[in-house]
Amino acid sequence: MTQSPKNTDVQALFNKIAPEYDKMNNIISLGTHKLWRQKVMAKMSFPVGAQIIDLATGTADWALALAEKSNETSHVTGLDFSEEMLAVGQKKVDVSDYSDKITLIQGDAMALPFDDASFDIVTIGFGLRNLPDPVMGLKEMYRVLKPGGQLVILETSQPDNPIVKPFWQFYFGTVMPVFGKVFAKGKYQEYKYLDETTEQFMDYMTLGKQLLKIGFATVKISRFNLGAAAVHYAVK
């Protein structure tokens, strides 16, 4: 059983919300999560024949986008610990134009089943904060990257503008769990938990410093929606 720092069985939680996950993502982010990914990938470089892994791939949205963006000889592996999320993702992959470029597997982002220096690109979108030990996960990402490889982390963040922050806290702390209750078959507590992980996760500067401490050569940071999300580009 994979426990979060709040002693929550995260695997069971994501298995439970999997059927409504895509719909809720669109509702909660007002559709901006797709735009964020597009902006992130516009700044990434994709070598020919790249080996790419998307961690916490969930229902495979980013894996599919990476397959579309990379050249035809590249391959995308999507890894997630929730079998129900992967089942939803596999259906999307099977009907896509990239079924031969994408492999979805169940696994633990803190103990990746791959050799050192296996991948050119590692991505993780809105999943790092749900790892019981995010630092251990970051070390694993560093390990499986090739020298010169790219790590891209897209994650919710905390606005530091004193005018914006109260509205952000109200939306994520009050409105989002209610959306879970209304639109996701009564799953108020599950979406309340996801809000709490956002509030308690390390801020974007702390994450950047942690990446440098682990050994990444360079780290660049961009923020979206007045700080509601941040992307970290790191090179090994």
Rank of each mutant, 00 (worst) to 15 (best):
P177H: 05
V152Q: 10
P147L: 01
Y191Q: 00
F170L: 13
M176G: 02
G148P: 10
S157P: 03
I163R: 01
Y142Q: 05
I153F: 00
Q150N: 07
L151Q: 15
D160Q: 13
V182I: 15
Y171E: 05
V144K: 08
Y171W: 06
K187C: 05
I163W: 11
V182L: 09
Y142K: 01
V152C: 01
F170G: 01
V152S: 04
Q189W: 02
K165E: 12
D160R: 10
G149H: 03
V178C: 12
G148N: 02
L138M: 15
T156W: 10
L151E: 13
K165P: 00
F179G: 07
T156S: 12
V178D: 03
E155C: 11
L138S: 06
P147G: 12
L151M: 15
K139L: 14
S157N: 13
G173A: 14
Y193N: 05
Q189P: 06
S157I: 10
Y191K: 13
K165F: 03
W168Y: 04
D160L: 04
G180Q: 02
Y188L: 09
E190L: 04
E190T: 09
Q169H: 11
Q150F: 01
K146G: 14
L194M: 11
G180H: 00
F183A: 07
P177Q: 06
F179Q: 01
T174D: 03
Q150Y: 06
L154C: 01
F172E: 15
G180I: 08
V164D: 02
P166S: 10
V164I: 13
L151C: 15
P166R: 11
F167M: 04
E190F: 00
N161C: 14
K181H: 14
W168A: 01
I153P: 09
